[in-house]
Design a protein around this nucleic acid. Sequence first.
DNA 1: CGCTGCCTTGATCTTCTTCAAAACGTGTGG
DNA 2: CCACACGTTTTGAAGAAGATCAAGGCAGCG
Lengths: 249, 249
Amino acid sequence: MKNRRKTPLEIEAIEPEMCSVDLRLEILTQVPFFADLSATDIEVVNRQFVEFGYSPGEMIYLAGDQAERLYVVAEGKIKLLRYTPAGQAVMLDVLTPGEFFGSLAALGENEYPDTAQALVSSCVLSIETGGFRKILQKHPSVAVKVVDIMAERLKAAHEMVQQLSASSAEQRIAHVLRKLAAKLGERKEVGLLIQLPLSRADLAEMAGTTTETASRMMSQFQKEGFIQTGRQWVAIRDLKALEDLVDIP
Amino acid sequence: MKNRRKTPLEIEAIEPEMCSVDLRLEILTQVPFFADLSATDIEVVNRQFVEFGYSPGEMIYLAGDQAERLYVVAEGKIKLLRYTPAGQAVMLDVLTPGEFFGSLAALGENEYPDTAQALVSSCVLSIETGGFRKILQKHPSVAVKVVDIMAERLKAAHEMVQQLSASSAEQRIAHVLRKLAAKLGERKEVGLLIQLPLSRADLAEMAGTTTETASRMMSQFQKEGFIQTGRQWVAIRDLKALEDLVDIP
DNA sequence: CGCTGCCTTGATCTTCTTCAAAACGTGTGG
DNA sequence: CCACACGTTTTGAAGAAGATCAAGGCAGCG
């Protein structure tokens, strides 16, 4: 039996991923900001989390929904995006296991400003915002970790602002590929494969351009030998060339 | 003696602003994240802060400097910006009294990614990053407040990303004016005056465009009666019109 | 009064978007 | 196993938006 698919991507399960009960505790232990908690503390925290599974493309919450929960990715990949009044999508981030999203803020300012969507079959753990804030109050080490993560994210967002303000479409696409490779890249025969079904439209949403421009840039990069790409997948063959594109000019 | 200046802006002192010693404690009390601390705790915190004064245009730190201090604006206005490899400036934020900037992260990843510059005569309080982290560990309520502020900033940064990705230059300038008015606007005869010496180049840095385009948009807005503007100043006369520009199309 | 640095305005050119149509890869159902 | 249908990708050509280049005007200040 030969395989005619050309995608080097690993195929994902079709059913919504559910984390096994015993796996949950292990996942929470590995989440960066709970790392310093004792086993008994983690156990208490664990009881406050509930678990949800999502199929590829399924929405976890929509911009404008009541924001009263915080989520932690247990398995899969989640994208955070915004829609303009005109309906254009802008992708803000792709989250992988261990990262959190959703509402951190106290009740009051209570609408999600963005939308969270599962990119592949995923499992997330979720806690009420109020409950999480109590954990922060009780365990300062967790709070400090959360501050660190937020600082990291703010820095990344500022970097996006800079790119969008001052770079050409070619540079922005190169930068997006560089970031994706760092976060989701896996060494394969084709190169640094980005483990994600990634269309030209997705790239355009991330780089602030159009599908057509993204396609043109990708063709150009492939012709120059920087990447290898096909329908819904990309692998980086020359990361340094992409980095130079972003930095030097 | 008649005044021939046309600027409606209040003139700033030329010497670097120094906060009087007794004023320092009062300022720290009013800083949002120390609000819940007792008088004695604040006193202890106060002793860890040192004070710096800056003249307009003076740099507080430069991107690439060793990042080991956190700053709190006591008086004045501080701008946070980044420079592209090509030297183009991108303004990320304008900070007013009570807001913090600088390094929050643990020592290790230790370079400021951005540059901080005084826009007007300013006074800032500063603490070592390590000392501030100890405060966070000791006073969870402070940590939670910091998390909230970071969440707010991240949301604002994401909004900038959205604007830059999906809006025209006209919309981006309108959006920048809207934000500045909300943060720095003061009701005067000319309208909602933005209390800041603000050149066309500054606006361009904030909106991700060029001086010339910023100038054209400002002329257009003035012709349409939305704003009143001159050399280094702007006042908003019709905020709703600007908001509609951003939201509707 | 004249200098300096901002601001404005016009003309040109580049970049990117838009519109359109064809080519291709994938999964489906014969 | 093959052929069809769908969504993705590519490519072209025309158009618009904004950057760039260049010059002149004006405010503020000595």
